[in-house]
Structures are given as C-alpha cells and as structure tokens.
Write a protein that binds this DNA or RNA. Structure first.
Lengths: 228, 228
DNA sequence: CATTATTTACAAGTCAAGCTCATTTTGCGA
DNA sequence: TCGCAAAATGAGCTTGACTTGTAAATAATG
C-alpha cells in the first residue's frame, strides 16, 4: 500500500486524483464537477491537484484517454479469435454498442471536450487507437477478398461508428429497443453493401456464357431456316 | 426600423440579443462567449439580457432551436419535389451533409448542450422537427412498398444520420474527401439493404425461366438440324 | 547526525464571469 | 402634466477555477 520510492508515491497520488476525478465527472458531468470536491475525494489539498494536472480540462483529458485505452483493450480481445471479417465486425459492434450504452456519460464527455476556441480538442484523438481495431479488420478483409474491391474504407468506418453511436442514444431513450437487433441490422447492411458474394458472380457468369451460346445458336438457326 | 407598439419593440430587442448571442457563440463557442460581450453587441445592459433569457444556457438553447428550425425548412424544400423514396433520401442526405460541414460549430454546440446533471439536455429535442422530414419520407416509402416490409424505421434512421455526422467530421479533417461520394455510398447502402427490388427479383426469376425455355428449344432445334 | 537544499503539499487569496437586485428611466393612459 | 407600471440599468454578489506565499517532508551534503 504505502509505496517506498518517490516515483511510486507520486504515481500513487496521481492515480488517486484521477480516480477521484473520474467519480466526480461521471456523477456530475464536466461542469458539475468541482475541483474542490475532487481534491477532497483524493484526500489532498486543492492546490495539490494542480501540481499533477495543469487545468481541469487536462484532468478530464487524462480521464477520457484512460477510458478509451481500456475500451481498446477490450475491443482487441473481443475481436481476437474471430476469423471471418463480418464475424469480427459483429463482435466489435456488439462490444462497442454495449459500452456506448453503459458509459454514455463518458462518451458525451469525450465529445464535448471543452474547447476554448483555438486549441484542438482532439475529440477523436482518444479514439484513434480504438478505431484502429476496426481498420485492422477491414484491411484484412480486403486482403482476403472478403470485401469488394470498390469499398471505401473510411466511408464504411463512418457508417459503422456513426450508426452505432446514434443507435446507442436511441436505445437509451427507448429501453425496449434491443442492442442485438441493431448489431444484426448493421452487419447485414454492411454485408449487403460490401461483402464479396462468391455465389452470385459465378452464377451470372454462367448464365452469360449460356446466353452467348444461345444467341450464337439462334443466329445460326435463323440463317439456315432463312436460306431454306 | 423603429417599431411602434410595445410588443414590437420587445420582440425586436429579443431578436437583437439572440443575434448578438449567435455571433458570439459561433465565434468563441459556448464557454468562450461572454454575457457582457453579448449584451454590448446587442446594445443593451448586461442585466437586460436576463430579462429576455433566464440563463446563458437558455440563450444558447434558443439559438440552437432557431438554427434547426431553419434547417428544417430547407430540408423540406429540398425534398418537396422528389417523388421516389431514395431520390428524396438522396436530396435530404446531400442537404444535411452540406449543412453539417458548413455549420459544424453549431452542431457541436447542439450536442454539447451544457448539462448540469439532472436536466435533459434535449440533444435531439431541437432535431425532432428536422428528423421528422426523414420519417415522412420513410413512412411514405413503406406505404408505397418501395421499402421492404421488414425494414426497421429507427435503425435505418440511425444509420442515415449517424453515418452522415461522422462523415462530416471526417470530411472536415480531410478536405480531399468528397461529399458527393459519401451521399452516393450511403444511398447505395440503404438501397441494397432496404429497397424493394421489384425489377430484379422477378426479372431474374422470369429471365431464368425464359433461359430454360430457350435452352430447351435450341437444344431441340440443334438436334433436329444435326439430324438433317 | 545536523544542516542545507529541493521537492511536495497546503490553503488562503485572486480573479473572472454568470447572475441578482435596488434604483432609475421610459412610455402610456388619464 | 402627472402617476404608475413596465423595462432597463450596472454596481455588486457569488461561485469556482486557478495562483501563490508559506510550511512540511524528503533528499543531499559534510
């Protein structure tokens, strides 16, 4: 418990403050949270907090970064054992939606990332590593030709994350609407648009060959019957 | 300019304050905007602002409501003369994306709608009338059987608005990515998933039957001509 | 171990910004 | 012109993020 080295003690206190902040932010939102309260929860004077985090904004940034870091780990686990592209996407979507719904407060914090005009909020800066999980699946899918060649990576990604975020809001408002159906629908939609259909193409090719043969035959027959 | 009746004067002043607030919010964001500055811009004492709007939050709410009101009008116009479901959706999507990109600052304000824990921010409260435009198109599409019967209205809506919002962010970050392609892709995706394919399904069935018949005929003819 | 130096902690105090309220000004009917 | 209610004012009040001068704890030095 009680650490020995200086470094350990410092890190321990930093964690304590961060945890206190997390509680406060989740309970009261960014504006609602009071620095004084966070200090008290961490068992530290108000001034001390500022030795570890320059501003309140900084504190929230750290908190949000932590959050997305955790999510990324979980996402990677959820996806690890999934071989086929849409299986992996399904797992990722289910995970993502679940987290969005459970911890929507934090997600909203992420996006409302206090901007005082001028400094880049990095709304999505936090999400970069997280989004990379999707990117990896997608790229692998392209390599394996499980996705059509004309698929535009970033457009698919926006559909994926965008619709899930909106769905999360909807579900929070109407508890009767199920997560599973959202994920199923999304995956179905992506499949219809982006999946390579190994069955369809060949069959049309076959019928085209057939058509050519028929046309040739008919032409020939027409000629012979005309001549006759 | 100078109004006559008391009522008119009051309304005029309210508008002046609202306009001043709009400028300030767009320039500096919610936090950056100063009530003192808004008052000065509107040519009014700071206390006066509070006679018209109870709080700063209220002021922003009014501003954002106005904004979405305008958008709704424009959306309705854009969609008015579009007959077929996906044509209308295409027009709406193009309009929406355009506005998201142009006025993203306001959209972000909408979502960061200051929450002091407890009161519903009504993120989407503003958007209700706006979203109704989509709903109308969709419902009509169902009535006309241009959409498959199993389509889930709200899920489609979330895909529509969610992906457009994310796409808007992406496009703002990478100016080279085009709006048109996003809209095309979205509509294509929705079609593949939700459109009733009155031509395709029956036609392929029909053409297959036709093919079979032709093949049989040709085979027969070939045989007879061979025999001859 | 004593002393000095440095890092860490503290909490009283500053400052800025949203909001209030006692007072003044304005406009209208009698 | 007078009276009075509605409208406007701006000097404070309050709150909460941040600063800063001071004190405690820890490390370095002789």
């Amino acid at each position: 418990m009680t650490a020995v080295t200086r470094r350990e003690r410092v890190e321990q206190k930093e964690r304590a403050i961060l945890e206190a902040a997390a509680e406060a932010f989740v309970e009261s939102g960014y504006d609602g949270a009071r620095m004084a309260d966070i200090a008290k929860r961490a068992g530290v004077a108000e001034g001390t907090v500022y030795l570890y985090f320059k501003t309140k904004t900084d504190l929230m940034r750290a908190f949000v970064a932590d959050f997305w870091g955790d999510l990324t780990q979980r996402a990677e686990q959820a996806v690890a054992d999934k071989g086929e592209t849409f299986e992996a996407l399904d797992a990722l979507a289910a995970m993502h939606l679940q987290n969005l719904i459970e911890r929507f407060d934090v997600v909203e914090l992420t996006q409302s990332g206090r901007v005082r005009r001028g400094d880049t909020p990095g709304n999505r800066e936090f999400m970069k590593a997280y989004v990379a999980v999707f990117d990896r699946i997608w790229r692998r899918g392209m390599d394996r030709s499980e996705l059509i060649e004309t698929a535009v990576h970033w457009q698919a990604r926006d559909i994926f994350f965008g619709s899930l975020e909106y769905a999360a809001r909807t579900i929070r408002l109407h508890r009767d609407r199920t997560q599973a159906s959202v994920v199923d629908n999304l995956i179905e939609t992506l499949k219809k648009r982006y999946a390579v259909t190994t069955k369809e193409k060949p069959s049309t090719q076959k019928s085209e060959r057939l058509l050519q043969r028929l046309e040739a035959a008919v032409t020939r027959l027409e000629n012979t019957s005309n001549r006759a």
